[in-house]
């Protein structure tokens, strides 16, 4: 008697079944992976800027303090992007003929602001205040990475909610002494487990339950 299916149909059918099961598991895993990839989050990608400003040179090699340019980082919600005038404080004296700095001089001469590509962006429903973090012992590099090592600046961390929550749930893992806040190469010392809670108490940081309330960030 004739068979309804050829012998090869079995293999095909089982392959199809297994593919279906694999897709059921694999596609969500793939989607989750894509969402977390640097392609989507933009981590580590240095976009072209109006001029190739190097944090590594200015901050790392020359040792200019963060607050020289980002003047309001410890006073206001925003850190502040320096006006062209700030660049010209030095560059009206040094490298005055450099081609690389032509956009700065043009901006200053023509009163047209420089338009920098934005790197760090929070959704508009998130409230964030630089000053409270900086003054309570959270260093620049905790979020922005070691900027002094960046020839061209890139996003060091994807500011997803879990990134914020990681610290908000256990701030004592990340708090630093006040003099270490500007240290870009800070790593938790060996005694962070004892130092952290002590510092958190000194800064009056109420951790865990308070810092993870929705209204802390979603005001």
């Amino acid at each position: 008697m004739a068979q309804l299916f050829t012998p090869g149909a079995d293999a095909l059918y089982r392959l199809a079944l297994m593919t279906g099961v694999a897709c059921l598991v694999g596609l969500p895993v793939l989607a989750a992976g894509i969402v977390r990839s640097n392609y989507v989050t933009g981590v580590g990608v240095a976009p072209a800027q109006p001029l190739p400003f190097s944090h590594k040179h200015h901050s790392g090699e020359l040792g200019i303090d963060c607050r020289y340019c980002h003047t309001t980082v410890d006073k206001e919600a925003t850190a502040g992007i320096p006006p062209t005038q700030t660049c010209m404080t030095c560059h009206s004296q040094i490298w005055t003929g450099s081609d690389m700095l032509k956009p700065v001089r043009d901006s200053y001469a023509q009163d047209i602001p420089l338009e920098w590509k934005r790197l760090n962006k929070l959704p508009q429903y998130v409230y964030y205040n630089h000053s409270v973090h900086v003054t309570k012992g959270i260093g620049c590099s905790t979020c922005h990475g070691d900027v002094t090592a960046m020839q061209m600046t890139y996003r060091a961390n994807a500011f997803e909610m879990r990134f914020c929550l990681d610290c908000h749930r256990a701030p004592e893992k990340y708090v630093r002494p006040p003099d270490q806040v500007w240290n870009m190469t800070w790593t938790p010392p060996a005694d962070q487990a004892t130092l952290g809670p002590k510092l958190a108490a000194e800064y009056h940081i109420r951790g865990g339950a308070r810092l993870t309330e929705c209204g802390i960030c979603h005001r």
């Binding site: 206001e76 502040g80 200053y108």
Partner: peptide, 22 residues
């Protein structure tokens, strides 16, 4: 971009007392 938030445009000469966002 998201509501024109793709760029940061600082002042050329920042007026005294005016701090963006405050």
């Amino acid at each position: 971009g998201a509501g024109g938030r793709d760029h940061e445009v600082p002042y050329v000469n920042q007026p005294e007392r005016i701090v963006p966002g405050t």
